[in-house]
Design a binder for these strands. Sequence first.
DNA 1: TCATTCTTTCAATAAATTTTGAAAATTCAG
DNA 2: CTGAATTTTCAAAATTTATTGAAAGAATGA
Lengths: 168, 168
Amino acid sequence: MKLAEAKLQFIASWGAFGTHWGINRTMAQVHALLMVSAEPLSQDDVMEQLNISRGNVNMNVRELIDWGLVDRVILPGERKEYFTAEKDIWKVARLIIKERKKRELDPMLKLLDQLENVDGDKKDKHVKQFTDTVAGIKRFGQQADKMLDVMVKADEHWFVGSLMKFFK
Amino acid sequence: MKLAEAKLQFIASWGAFGTHWGINRTMAQVHALLMVSAEPLSQDDVMEQLNISRGNVNMNVRELIDWGLVDRVILPGERKEYFTAEKDIWKVARLIIKERKKRELDPMLKLLDQLENVDGDKKDKHVKQFTDTVAGIKRFGQQADKMLDVMVKADEHWFVGSLMKFFK
DNA sequence: TCATTCTTTCAATAAATTTTGAAAATTCAG
DNA sequence: CTGAATTTTCAAAATTTATTGAAAGAATGA
């Protein structure tokens, strides 16, 4: 397979992958493009390679920068901004875990805390089912939280070494 | 907080949560409703409690059944079908992991295998960046795959016991 | 400063997704 | 079988989300 074709396939499928994870298809495609590009790209490069508008590139690149997945770089002698993506997939994973934990898991746990204290007879079947479910999810979430914290802080080599040994 | 209010909040936020994970909001809400309901609900019950149409309930419940998260139950003496959700959050997590692995991770790994073999000079900067990125993602994916397999097969108690001990 | 190049914004538009509801299909008791 | 109860389907409508592109804003260097 030719490089150009392979790139296109990779970008397309990374985009499709993204949509299953609540990420906008184009954002995932821009990310994919930058990950497989050896050199930093400008807005115009991205526009051309993905066939999307300037505004769209701008929005999605900004979002990727917010996530810490992409950096602006200034090339000497150039007026334009260029962009480059973090290429170490473990760092990428850690950045994503960190952000999603902050944006989703932490607020969910906070809410569950509140919901555990509903008024009414704890013996009531309906109250009991609700509090049991909420408590179960909370406990699960707290364990996930702990585990993800370790991952986020972990150095790759330690992590791969010990965790993967653990998992046979 | 009153039970009814707490239920509504839980359902709303579980729905919002779902949208961040590529799941349709209503499907997540139906799931939430069934998880906190002590007794099985009929289509009409779900329609009424979530204010959605019959067709919508039908579609989303069917999807939840496909995922293994919801079961049909027949109440003796009743003509209607009733629905009930798996309430053990660990089982829920394992079912979700299993399905998503099959639907997303496995096909992605297959694709990456193919993309690793691009034509051209391995010394070429652009070819190298592409193959390195793809290889890195593939390795990461394989490790995730192994880890998730263990989780899916694990019995909860073993799992919580050993993994959580591992994560301090 | 000014003219030029580049970046950002955002209202309008387009596209994708979700929801509805009525009709068709199915089920089942009598 | 018959017909009432229930479930399923799916085209059309509504809603949500993503994209465009032109105009406004910033940055740069002469």
